[in-house]
């Protein structure tokens, strides 16, 4: 790996000061399981001059309830989130999402913030530089999205525009269904952004002088149920082909409210509003689950090789809804 300067962050303010001083020449490192791969393969034309280690910021890895809100620090490890009694009890969908990431070793290293901010897995984007040169593309600021006319089995079926790479984060999908917000701190202070607004087509809304410090999840109502389903080619060390996170509020077997989020189908976590409508106010019998499944993918416009993801998305929505 090419070298860089390495700073241990002492505090959030310290990070902000470094970001401000070395504007755009830095990379934030938490677990490193994504960033180190990006650096080793030299997939990006710009190589960071400075790596800032966030793990040294005291207290940024905690999981706690504060005022009916769960706060998870950005450097909390995925393994700790998956194993947390609190998370398992109150946010089982999030525990399941955390448990589905990578492998036990990767979960021991990877963090919540890192999972949310990881770069896409698009194989054109991640083509290693030393195998003939990195591949310029729209996402890198130059050229088309090669997936459109190329190999696109894992790319977006919904909402692709100019770049069809999908958001690889499993945690984002579960968190979106749980109505979580991301705490971002920058030079102008802090803000809380709903997960769905945290992403844009080409990554996240984070400015180069900002960082994620925490995620806040409201405690769900008493009659809430939730589930996370992930389809992937391999039962470990794999990203989602399609994932679904569902949160339902119900009275008896009638669904009062629903939040249905699809992962890996779009450049950002996709809220299937039509599917939510299809189940809202109705009994959860198979027929409605099937309606919701259909509605979930109504906006799908698959590329040449990924229409199969539509079928998988429908299946996952149906199975998730019928799991309660």
């Amino acid at each position: 790996m090419k070298t860089f300067k390495h700073f241990d962050a002492e505090s959030v303010d310290h990070v902000l000061a470094i970001l401000a001083r070395y504007h755009g020449k830095t990379a934030l490192m938490a677990g490193g399981t994504d960033l180190i791969g990006v650096l080793k393969s030299e997939i990006l034309p710009e190589y960071p001059k400075i790596i800032i280690n966030l793990k040294t910021i005291a207290g940024m890895n905690t999981i706690k309830m504060v005022d009916k809100e769960c706060r998870i620090g950005a450097t909390a490890r995925l393994a700790d989130i998956a194993a947390s009694g609190l998370i398992q009890k109150i946010f089982p969908a999030l525990a399941a999402a955390a448990e589905s990431v990578g492998s036990p070793e990767l979960r021991n290293m990877g963090t919540l913030g890192g999972n949310l901010c990881q770069d896409t897995r698009c194989w054109y984007y991640r083509y290693p530089d030393k195998m003939g040169g990195r591949i310029p593309c729209y996402r890198k600021g130059k050229g088309p999205c090669h997936a459109v006319k190329g190999e696109n089995r894992y790319h977006a079926i919904i909402g692709g525009k100019k770049c069809y790479a999908v958001c690889p984060s499993d945690m984002a999908i579960a968190l979106a269904a749980l109505d979580a917000r991301v705490k971002i701190i920058g030079p102008g202070g802090s803000r809380l952004v709903p997960i769905l607004d945290f992403y844009n087509v080409l990554c996240t809304i984070l400015n180069p002088d900002e960082m994620v410090t925490e995620v806040r999840i409201p405690e769900p109502g008493k009659n809430t149920v939730q589930a996370f389903y992930k389809n992937r080619p391999r039962e470990a060390v794999d990203f989602a082909v399609v994932s679904v996170a569902v949160r339902l509020e119900r009275t008896g077997d009638v669904c009062k409210d629903a939040c249905i989020i699809l992962g890996a189908v779009a450049p950002v976590p996709y809220r299937a509003v039509a599917a939510e409508e299809a189940v809202r106010g109705r009994r959860l019998h198979e027929i409605h689950a099937a309606d919701a499944a259909k509605a979930a993918v109504k906006d799908a416009r698959p590329l040449s090789q990924n229409a199969y993801k539509i079928e998988i998305a429908k299946t996952l929505v149906k199975r998730a809804l019928l799991s309660f």
């Binding site: 259909k294 509605a295 993918v297 109504k298 799908a300 199969y308 998988i312």
Partner: peptide, 11 residues
Amino acid sequence: LKACGKEKGNP
């Protein structure tokens, strides 16, 4: 899925 007649997939 194609073999299962679900190749269109689209609703």
